[in-house]
């Protein structure tokens, strides 16, 4: 047993990409965990799903534009486009859910499938155009640098993050954590009783859109870790698990953050031990199992699920 642990540790130390994965993965998961508490109590799980899936359409668009616009070939430009797309989707979802024309879940469901479909079509189109451009000598594979595969977009590619990605992850997460802490009272009031929050002077519409925009920006880095399909796991599972362990909002938030950080670490070392490259899905699996165990241990206690 200790032999296995020693060899896993040796590989972690030997390969910088494992270390990068850990130092990028932890802040991403922590940022998501801070938001997940409010996503869970405000019952915004499906909204989170809608926003994160819209990132797929953005990736498709970015990769198509890369062929024609050299400026779009840097990873930062691609991330910026995805961020704009996700924030746009967040605001659109907000408008649709606040309006009363169509019901909330229908609106989000539509957004979700439309952006997924758009992503697939754009990526197919890009592949066809790219082949044509290569055969006529207009472009070379090397011009585009690293291009994520379908699998990378859908399920993440944390083992191939760059230094710049690490910085981006820390920057985005630190901003989200600071915003949540600064507006903690307002968020608690908003999530526990939105109507009363409005009456007592909290600008609930601003809090709601602020939360959605934070989710949108976080998705940009979270899709590196777990991919667009599993982003919503990071926005649900930490808060949902923590809500089973305490009925004090401060402790719930702290538990969610620790849970997220531990799950990323456990998932990464498991992926080293079993030589599995789908690190993101493994992290989500660890979180789901931990939730299941917590639920079995705690479902009979007096704590009530939100």
């Amino acid at each position: 047993m200790s032999l296995v642990a020693a060899s896993v540790w040796a590989r972690f130390v030997d390969f910088p990409f494992y270390q990068n994965a850990l130092i990028a993965g932890i802040p991403i998961a922590v940022g998501c965990a801070m938001l997940s508490v409010f996503v869970v109590y405000k019952r915004m799980a499906f909204i989170g799903q809608g926003i994160s899936h819209s990132a797929f359409g953005a990736v498709g668009l970015a990769m198509l534009l890369q062929l024609y616009l050299p400026a779009m070939r840097s990873p930062l430009a691609r991330d910026a486009l995805i961020a704009v797309f996700c924030v746009g989707a967040a605001i659109l979802v907000g408008r649709l859910t606040r309006g009363r024309r169509i019901s909330e879940d229908v609106a989000i469901g539509l957004c979700l499938v439309a952006t997924m479909a758009l992503g697939v079509v754009l990526l197919d189109l890009r592949t066809a155009l790219f082949r044509g451009m290569v055969s006529s000598g207009l472009i070379h594979q090397a011009d585009l640098g690293y291009t994520p595969s379908f699998h990378d977009i859908l399920f993440g590619s944390i083992l191939s993050v760059s230094r710049a990605d690490v910085w981006l992850a820390w920057g985005v997460s630190a901003t989200v954590v600071m915003l949540v802490l600064a507006f903690f009272k307002e968020l608690v009031f908003f999530a526990s009783d939105e109507e009363a929050a409005e009456v007592f002077g909290v600008r609930t519409a601003q809090v709601y859109y602020g939360l959605l925009v934070c989710i949108g920006v976080t998705v940009v880095v979270a899709m590196r870790l777990v991919g667009v399909i599993l982003c919503s796991a990071l926005l649900i599972l930490p808060g949902a698990t923590a809500s089973l362990w305490s009925d004090r909002i401060g402790r719930v938030t702290l538990i969610a953050v620790l849970f997220a950080a531990c799950s990323v670490t456990a998932g990464l070392f498991l992926s080293i031990a079993f030589r599995v490259v789908s690190t993101g899905p493994l992290i989500v699996l660890v979180m789901s199992l931990a939730f299941g165990v917590s639920y079995m241990l705690k479902s009979k206690s007096k704590l009530r699920a939100p």
Binding site: V188, S192, F200, R304
Partner: peptide
Amino acid sequence: LNTSFPITVSQLARLGLVGK
């Protein structure tokens, strides 16, 4: 009211001061 939200009685009462 949704009483499953994890706050205490004194935390709830203090929320009245948030806007101010």
